[in-house]
Amino acid sequence: MRYGYYPGCSLERNAIAYHQSAVAVAPQLGIELNEIDDWNCCGATEYSSIDLIPAYALIARNLALAEQQQDENGGQLVAPCSACFLNLSKADHYMAEAPDLAEKVNDALSAGGLHYDPGSIQVRHLLDVIVNDVGYDAIKAKVSKPLSGLRVAPYYGCLIVRPGYQAFDDPEYPTSLDKLMRVLGAEVVDYPLKTHCCGGHMTQISRPTALELIRRLLKNAADYEADAIVTVCPMCQLNLDAFQADVNRFFGTDFHIPVLYFTQLIGVALNISPVELGFGKEFVDARPALDKIGTGSPPTGRRRRSREKGLPMPTMSEEG
């Protein structure tokens, strides 16, 4: 399976572990990632609120390049970063919906000899490609080191499922990452805040607001005794990981929850060496959590209530 690969700026710097792990697991899953030649920044979350046309032109340039390089990507463009994914699919969506916008954007692109026909490139998130194109069964078959004993909180963040231009999961309560983690052998905790905001760039604007949002996410994961939070977005990872110490200082808490990319955990389950997967770059040390793999020590305290006593719980479809 061939795809165009749009790493985005963060995967070159703070989220390099995401890039390394994605590139490491892709061939094992039969995914061929061909980086778009000469790609540029997607404008992140801010630019579109400043000036719309240049913002869309900035994004659409990447789509136009992908369209040009269709031979290498088969018309599919994969973004591992949720913000990039949202921006790319948003530009495609609105250009298709509003022909006059498409005209203005293409006008701008023509300065560089480029043109983009909305709808010609399918924008995908890496999670979507892995769970839907590769599929759970194929991944399961490749797992050589199951993550048994590791309790993970699946954290989707807010950009990947909403507003859903390229929806591949329930926008209110997604479950694809949950299923993927189960396939890898991990124990998945119910994580009610899975789509709540990590604060985004609020850390630079209103620190207390951002820290409170991060605290909630960490606390909820800690309440469920998660050993790690697994993310699909560089922004989420940065906030939860790099600001964890700040949260502890600010609120007097004591969280030590490593925040990992889902591709890193796939890599571990496929028995790829931790160095190749970019481990060691995280602020909150992941080693204690990874040491639990294979041990399966039963956690105590706040767990789902046992079903032996009291009234029966309703069955969920997954449990049959």
Binding site: Y173, D190, P192, L311, P314
Partner: peptide
């Protein structure tokens, strides 16, 4: 269960109306 954000099936103390009918019924569980 089709509205997962209401937690039925995940959160123990979320009940459906029909479950509650049975619960308040003197002949119920």
């Amino acid at each position: 269960r089709r509205i997962p954000q209401y937690g039925y099936g995940r959160l123990a103390n979320v009940f459906t109306s029909l479950e509650f009918e049975r619960m308040v019924n003197a002949a119920g569980p």
